[in-house]
Design a protein around this nucleic acid. Structure first.
Length: 242
DNA sequence: TGACCCCGGAAGTGCATT
DNA sequence: AATGCACTTCCGGGGTCA
């Protein structure tokens, strides 16, 4: 399952594509990502990174994607996540935690987008989540899908929600319940702003059961995302990332 | 001047996989 | 048991702003 690949596996796959399909050298630097992230790229994202070979790589990847892609039909929109109309902000936090409890959502899944191209608008990804230009999946839909049938579980994130997944879900919350923590500044370009750094860090801390989490620590985790091209800082604008 | 941001290095942790 | 991953924790350093 390509979604379980580590970065080295992605490289191996690309090298295989080069040999198998006689492709011109691919720029591996533009594919510094794990399999899960690779699967999130759509055809044009891949074409952008591998000019001239995008289609081939994309198709090869699709062929490797297990039935999972087909299983995407079970779109249970069981929104237990949207069922809390808590009015107080405090309880809201708690609710959110329960909703997204890693323990209950083995498959954060939905890595909708993220992991955009190093040079170009990272964002086509992330942001377009709701518009679903990608294979499928709707973030909130999968969350509750605990161990969905066959236990296909998204694997890689099985140890609990990943930070980017967590942020993405808050950003794309249909009812925008978290806009006072984090919100899109420009959904098209993928730029978002953390409107309440301390609050967001607190939520993240609860989520991961790290009570002492703060913005300083959480932002360090965000900075690690620069390295893998999942995020980049919007220069000059505080608390803004793309 | 102090409070915040932002940045990355280094070491450590918890969990999952091999 | 070893290894890898995704952070977590700590920190020194630089920059901005009131």
């Amino acid at each position: 399952d390509p979604r379980t690949w580590a970065r080295e596996d992605v490289v191996t796959f690309l090298r295989w594509c080069e040999r198998e399909f006689d492709l011109p050298g691919l720029d591996l630097d533009k594919f510094q990502m794990n399999g899960k992230a690779l699967c999130l790229l759509n055809k044009s994202d891949i074409a952008e990174r591998a000019p001239g070979s995008g289609d081939v790589v994309h198709n090869a990847l699709q062929l490797l994607l297990p039935a999972a892609a087909n299983n995407a039909h079970h779109h249970h929109h069981s929104n237990q996540a949207g069922s809390n109309s808590g009015s107080q902000s405090d309880s809201e936090e708690n609710d959110s935690v329960q909703d997204n409890s890693p323990a209950r959502s083995p498959a954060p899944s939905t890595p909708i987008h993220l992991v955009p191209p190093p040079m170009s608008p990272l964002a086509t990804t992330f942001s377009s989540a709701a518009s679903s230009k990608n294979m499928d999946k709707d973030p909130l839909a999968t969350t509750p899908d605990r161990n969905g049938g066959g236990g296909d579980g998204l694997d890689s994130g099985s140890n609990g929600r990943l930070l980017w997944d967590f942020l993405q879900q808050l950003l794309n919350d249909p009812s925008q319940r978290y806009s006072h923590y984090i919100a899109w500044k420009n959904r098209e370009t993928g730029v978002f702003k953390i409107t309440d750094p301390a609050g967001l860090a607190r939520l993240w801390g609860i989520q991961k059961n790290h009570p002492s989490m703060n913005y300083d620590k959480m932002s360090r985790a965000l900075r690690y995302y620069y390295r893998v091209n999942i995020l980049r800082k919007v220069q000059g604008e505080r608390h803004c990332y793309q």
